[in-house]
C-alpha cells in the first residue's frame, strides 16, 4: 500500500458515493447510464470472487464488500426505486459490442487459464470500457449535470492515481501487472478529453457542460 494507491481507492469511493447520493437526494437518476452502472456491478462481482478464496488484508476485504454493496445499491436505485426517472431512451449504447470482445480477449490473454483468472481478467478489461455507455449518453443528450461531471472527474482521478501507483510499485517493489497496467492506461485515455472539458468549463463556473 502506498499513498497513491490509497488516494486512488478513496477517489473511487468518493465517485461512487457522489453518484449514489445524487440519485438518492434528487430522487432521480436522470442523465445517468444504468448500463454503465450494471457493467460496474458486473466488474466488481467477477473481480472480487477471491473474497471467498484468499484473504489479503482487512482493508482489502472491507473495500471489496463496500464497492460491491454500493454498486448494487446504485443499480437498485436506477432500475427499481427511481426507475420512472431513468432515461432509457438516451441510454442506448449497445453493451454487447463491449461484452463480446472483452469476453473473447479475457480467454486469449490471461495469467492462467482457470475460471477465477479468466473472470478476473474479464473484470479488468470490462472496467476499462464500462464508462462508455455513460459517455455515449452525455454525447447524445449534449450535456451533463455538474454533479455527473464531478462523478466522472473522481472516477478519472482514481484511474490516474492508479497509474502513479504502478510507477511507484515498479520502482520500489519491481511489481508489474501487465494486464492491469495496459488496460488501466487505455481506460485513463478515455477520460482525457473529459478532463480537459471539466477543467476548462465546469471548474470555471458554468456548472453544466456539453461535449462536442
Amino acid at each position: 500500500m502506498n499513498i497513491f494507491r490509497l488516494a486512488g481507492d478513496m477517489s473511487h469511493l468518493v465517485a461512487i458515493l457522489i453518484l449514489l447520493l445524487k440519485i438518492w437526494r434528487s430522487r432521480s437518476c436522470a442523465g445517468i447510464s444504468g448500463k454503465s452502472q450494471v457493467l460496474f456491478a458486473l466488474v466488481f462481482t467477477t473481480r472480487y470472487l477471491d473474497l471467498f478464496t484468499s484473504f489479503i488484508s482487512a482493508y482489502n476485504t472491507v473495500m471489496k464488500v463496500v464497492f460491491l454493496a454500493l454498486s448494487y445499491a446504485t443499480v437498485y436505485l436506477i432500475y427499481m426505486r427511481f426507475r420512472n426517472s431513468y432515461d432509457s431512451e438516451n441510454d442506448t449504447f449497445r453493451v454487447e459490442f463491449l461484452l463480446v470482445p472483452v469476453i473473447g480477449l479475457s480467454f486469449l490473454e490471461n495469467y492462467s487459464f482457470t475460471p477465477m483468472e479468466i473472470l478476473w481478467t474479464f473484470s479488468i478489461f470490462l472496467e476499462s470500457v464500462a464508462i462508455m455507455p455513460q459517455l455515449f449518453m452525455i454525447t447524445k443528450t449534449g450535456e451533463a449535470e455538474s454533479i455527473t461531471n464531478h462523478y466522472l472527474f473522481f472516477l478519472g482521478l482514481y484511474r490516474a492515481l492508479y497509474i502513479v501507483n504502478w510507477v511507484w510499485r515498479y520502482h520500489t517493489e519491481g511489481f508489474f501487472d501487465q494486464i492491469a497496467v495496459v488496460s488501466g492506461v487505455v481506460q485513463t485515455i478515455f477520460y482525457c478529453d473529459f478532463f480537459y472539458l471539466y477543467v476548462t468549463r465546469v471548474l470555471r463556473g458554468r456548472g453544466k457542460m456539453s461535449l462536442p
Binding site: 494507491r5 481507492d9 484468499s54 483468472e117
Partner: peptide, 10 residues
C-alpha cells in the same frame, strides 16, 4: 513475476 492468485489491488 507476479503470482496469479494474489491480486492485491482493488
Amino acid at each position: 513475476g507476479m503470482r496469479v492468485d494474489d491480486h492485491d489491488e482493488l
